[in-house]
Nucleic acid binder design. Structure first.
Length: 413
DNA sequence: TCTGGGGTCCTAGGACCC
DNA sequence: TCTGGGGTCCTAGGACCC
């Protein structure tokens, strides 16, 4: 299989690009920012992409930011100060206080995302969706796809995306998905990079392990502790040693990946596994002292999950909750129901049951609700799940030993 | 200066059944 | 009374990705 990996560069405020600028802030903050901009610039007609028409000095400075948001992305001018995506904005403000802070225009991002994927599938229909700004493409069967090793097709895709959206796009071309993704980073933004099997030693092995899709911070740290910094050093290790050190599955994968081997197909369609909603509070909350507020938040999250399920046409058989405590430790509880549901009240009851099993004596910063074991109504799976006969015994339904936990949702008793 | 929100996949132990 | 192995489901946690 020959694969492309394409990622579009979504940062596109032309008149601002040379300035240090950070985009992000969290949904709530972003709504507030929009509101403020509307007030200061009532003359601007609001719609997708209108941020482009606002003068730079109208935007808030990062130094004025208060809250728990993170940076979605940053211009190169801001990156020079050490600011990067996923960084907390309070930290970013210390590094680069004069940066402009821009809200994310989610509607516009979704529109651009749809458009660029549509452009691609019209040219190369075997496309795998990897999020708002990334896709894999299997171009083995695209007419003319092999010309100049794929470069001609890559250029056509770039040009078509730019015409339709104004976005630039970086493309990696390689014999498999793993290498294509690596290749796409060689020439950002708006680049094309081609990696062939023979390039392994030259182009891939000098890279830090962390560049590989699947080696995250933890694995990277462990690799470093064993003196492995680059993919070449990883490739030099015995397969058996990797398996002994990293486990059967992950160790074997590390070995294959370091040698540039990857057999995964480009997957054009997939069913969702779960749907969830979560929110980080503006201040840490406590089950007893902030009971009313938390109850309202939980209800809202359940309603959102229910409406997501209904809109997308799914029922869920398992409902779960998630908490993040002040110290950032996380806990989850879930409950499998006898009959699948997309009903807000049923989800709320199940979530309440789950919450009774967690320690609510400590303050927490995040609450989430998750629906999983999804079925489509009317399918055989759904029928079976709905009429599964007598309720199975629920083995572990112990309340948390902290008796105050019942204070949170008394109506459930 | 702490660290968003939405996902997927993997591991591992216990219950339960044959 | 103790000893099994295999398979599936449920639950909890964690790594990783965009």
């Amino acid at each position: 299989m020959d694969a492309f990996f394409a990622s579009v560069e979504l940062l596109r405020y032309p008149q601002l690009k040379g300035l240090p600028m950070v985009i992000g802030g969290g949904r709530r903050r972003e709504d507030e920012m929009f509101e403020r901009l509307r007030q200061t610039h009532p003359d601007i007609e609001w719609g997708p992409g209108t941020l482009d028409r606002i003068p730079p000095d109208a935007f808030p400075r990062l130094a004025d930011y208060v809250g728990r948001g993170v940076a979605t992305t940053a211009t190169y001018a801001a990156r020079q100060f050490g600011v990067g995506s996923a960084m907390g904005l309070m930290k970013a403000a210390k590094l680069c206080p004069h940066a402009i802070l821009l809200p994310v225009d989610f509607d516009e991002v979704r529109r651009l995302s749809r458009t660029f994927k549509q452009v691609i599938t019209e040219i190369a229909p075997v496309m795998e969706d990897r999020g708002v700004d990334e896709v894999y493409i299997d171009f083995t069967d695209v007419p003319g796809g092999q010309r100049e090793g794929g470069r001609v097709l890559a250029r056509l895709i770039q040009k078509s995306i730019h015409q339709a959206t104004g976005l630039t796009c970086s493309i990696g071309v390689a014999p498999n998905k793993l290498l294509a993704k690596l290749a796409s980073e060689f020439n950002k933004p708006n680049g094309i990079s081609i990696v062939q099997p023979d390039d392994l030693q030259q182009l891939i092995w000098p890279l830090p392990c962390r560049k590989l899709n699947g080696i995250g911070p933890k694995a990277d740290e462990k690799l470093k502790a064993h003196g492995i910094q680059t993919l070449g050093e990883l490739a030099a290790r015995e397969r058996d040693w990797l398996i002994a050190t990293f486990g059967k599955s992950y160790g074997a994968w590390l070995h294959e990946a370091a040698w540039g081997r990857d057999e995964r197909a480009v997957v054009t369609e997939s069913e969702p596994v779960s749907m969830s909603r979560e929110t980080t509070f503006e201040r840490d909350l406590h089950a007893v002292h902030d009971r009313a507020e938390l109850g309202a938040i939980l209800t809202r999250l359940c309603e959102q999950v229910a409406s997501d399920l209904q809109r997308k046409g799914y029922l869920a058989r398992t409902i779960g909750v998630k908490l993040t405590y002040v110290g950032f430790t996380k806990v989850t509880r879930d409950l499998t129901l006898d009959a699948p549901t997309a009903d807000a009240a049923a989800i709320r009851r199940a979530a309440g049951q789950c919450l009774k099993r967690v320690d609510l004596s400590k303050r927490f910063r995040l609450l989430g609700v998750r629906a999983s074991k999804l079925v489509k109504p009317g399918t055989p799976e759904a029928q079976e799940a709905a009429y599964s006969g007598p309720a199975r015994p629920k083995p572990r339904d112990k309340a948390h030993p902290d008796e105050r936990t019942d204070l949170l949702f008394p109506e459930l008793d």
